[in-house]
Design a protein around this nucleic acid. Structure first.
Length: 333
DNA sequence: TCTCCTCGAGATCT
DNA sequence: CTCGAGGAGA
């Protein structure tokens, strides 16, 4: 069971003059199972670098290999008892980071604590598909008692809008388009430098296009669903931690009878729950409103409900509630 | 037109 | 996750 990322910062579109570019390398793509192996952050102020942090990370967990798994191309360590592996050969190939390098690195608690100290709690983070990095960092910082709340600018999001004709919008593609050298790709510090150059070039391009960056921002402003889920936060600081909705991720489907969805989401937040708008493995409750009006739903079940039912079959910690049960829950405070 | 809600398709991070 | 397209209702 996982806990939702409470109070995680939100994705914003901004042309900042003060920010921190971040990048991490990890043992894989899945923040539930993989670990951070390198972190980097570079501060910029008014177009000038104002500090740099870059360090390898020794993960808190590793694989133990059996004798028969010791292939020539596999990079492993022998600690006197077991053959251990932080990273597999794919990651070593991709990043150039070896098990030997990680063995000599500081523990993740120390590095991440220093990293957060460098970045600060009020800075705005900039990165490429930076939600990936923020999720890993949120989870690993949370383990050492730090909550990462910084808002972040995803350069990839801007790149897609500025260069819609490009076939791909990977960091390396944008680097190529702008003629930015990318020799040390997939080392965190290098990727920060490259990401920053792409960010600056994109901003230049927007400002030179005849309209302002504010105009550019407006093309995002009308939120897609009508509800900006991240803007729903609780004004309270203390919660009843025994309330059934406390710490739970809640999703609504359909139209509620008694109140607009936005109001219901606000109530969830005020009870210490986490308002969410899509069903994932992290979802704890799905509240069913009325879907009668919606012709696209043929068999009476929304896609959210179907997804939730599938997750429940797989043993997820998720309950489907009727609207009235939801009202009972919020009134039993 | 604006608000609130839906589905489906398509990328990127290591 | 993000975005585009579209229904329903006021």
């Amino acid at each position: 069971m996982e806990t939702p990322r409470r109070d995680k910062g939100k994705s914003i579109i901004e042309a900042l003059d003060e920010y921190v570019v971040i990048d991490i390398e990890t043992t894989g793509l899945d923040s539930r199972y993989d670990r951070i192996i390198e972190v980097a952050a570079i501060k910029y102020k008014d177009g000038v670098e104002a500090g740099r942090f870059s360090e390898l990370v020794k993960p808190s967990s590793y694989n133990i290999l059996f004798e028969e798994d010791l292939k020539d191309e596999t990079d492993y360590l022998f600690n006197g008892k077991d053959y251990i592996q932080y990273v597999d050969s794919f990651i070593t190939e991709l990043t150039g980071i070896t098990n030997q390098m990680l063995k000599d690195a500081r523990d993740e608690e120390e590095v991440l604590s220093d990293f957060y100290g460098f970045v600060g709690s009020n800075s705005i983070l900039v990165g490429y598909n930076v939600n990936f990095d923020v999720n890993f960092l949120y989870d690993e910082l949370f383990e050492i008692g730090i909550q990462l709340k910084n808002d972040y600018v995803d350069v990839m999001r801007i790149a897609r809008r500025v260069k819609p004709s490009l076939e791909h919008h990977r960091q390396r593609d944008l680097a190529e388009v702008y003629g930015i050298s990318n020799d040390n790709a997939h080392r965190a510090e290098n990727d920060c430098v490259v990401c920053n150059q792409i960010y600056c070039r994109l901003i230049d391009e927007i400002n030179n296009s005849g309209s302002s960056f504010d105009d550019f921002k407006k093309t995002y402003s009308k939120s897609h669903s009508g509800i900006d889920i991240k803007s729903i936060t609780s004004s309270k600081t203390a919660f009843d931690t025994t309330h059934p909705l406390y710490g739970k991720s809640v999703v609504f489907t359909g139209t509620l009878e008694r109140m607009p969805r936005k109001e219901a989401l606000q109530i969830v937040a005020d009870l210490g729950g986490i308002p969410t708008d899509s069903v994932t493995k992290n979802t704890n409750y799905l509240v069913l409103g009325n879907n009668d009006y919606c012709k696209t739903i043929k068999d009476g079940k929304s896609s959210k409900q179907k997804k939730a039912e599938a997750l429940i079959l797989k043993g997820a910690d998720l309950q489907i509630l009727s609207e009235s049960v939801f009202y009972d829950m919020i009134e039993s405070e």
